[in-house]
Amino acid sequence: MTAAVLEVENLRMEFRAPRNAGGRRVQAVRDVSLEVQEGEILGLVGETGSGKTTVGKCVVRLLRPTAGSIRFMGEDITAMPSSQLRPLRSRIQMVFQDPYSSLDPRMTVSQIVAEPLRAHGTHSRREAAGLVRRTVERVGLSQQVLDRYPNELSGGQRQRVGLARALVLEPRLLIADEPVSALDVSVRAGILNLLVDLQRTMGFSCLFITHDLSVAEFLCDRVAVMYLGEIVEVGTRDEVFGAARHPYTRSLLGAAPLADPVEQRSRQRAILPGEPPSAIDPPPGCSLNPRCPLADRRCTEEAPGPTQVSEGGHVVRCHRVQEQLDLEVARS
């Protein structure tokens, strides 16, 4: 087994609503454990509000987690003071969702891409200029954009600039928070292909946060599915997309339309009723129990632990799946 670049254990992130709004705690992330291995792309999939962005923000320490631990290349960064964290920041970079607000409107492209180099002072001015030029080229932009301001660029070009800024320091880990969700479909493919190419040539690991299943299926080596601040299923791409066990994953896959209309009309789909409950007071037991067609009394009382489905690390949190597996084991 290869070394883990990022290990997240029992991460918990609570936000306290202002006192005049009731002062209640929002449990954005309740219990998340995941690993990103050397050179792999892990997809973190879930609906809006499931806490995937919060996980990303904790990993880059824009947020300080309430509990749990985050280790980057073996070093615990959960509560590291910012002075100690600064040198490590050059090795964890982030690409943001909105290419319009993630670039400073008053800086030129070359200034934006050079910023990480300046911040860490690792290169001379001349080296930095050359590196910026090469990186901009690498993300498929022409040299002409160097002196442009972000508002002169299209959404796709801006996201390439964001990618160049993140990759100019050759990080070991890239957190990509829905980098293509704000882009036109026509532009999206170009960015995704670019990301795959860069990942192969540069060899960084990537935590790719998305709500788009087709993007995750295209891009990721492994996929983790989040629901209400918890990871309900993790596995390789084939395991999650080909042999999903968790009822939530299955309904999520069923909700995504297929390209073939005949197949789309004829297939069996299990759509969950209702909406995800509020993260202020999540239901007791399994977080999916109010909506799950398979739920029984145990599901409403006891939170399911992780169940190993396969040798490779396909893990599901569901009582029903666990019982099924126990049955299979008993039969054989």
Binding site: P87, I92, M94, S101, E115, G162
Partner: peptide, 17 residues
């Protein structure tokens, strides 16, 4: 709260800058 400031923090840009 703008992403470009958050991006600068993540990159390790000093507060002063």
């Amino acid at each position: 709260e703008q992403d470009f400031v958050q991006a600068a923090i993540v990159t390790g840009v000093r507060d002063r800058v």
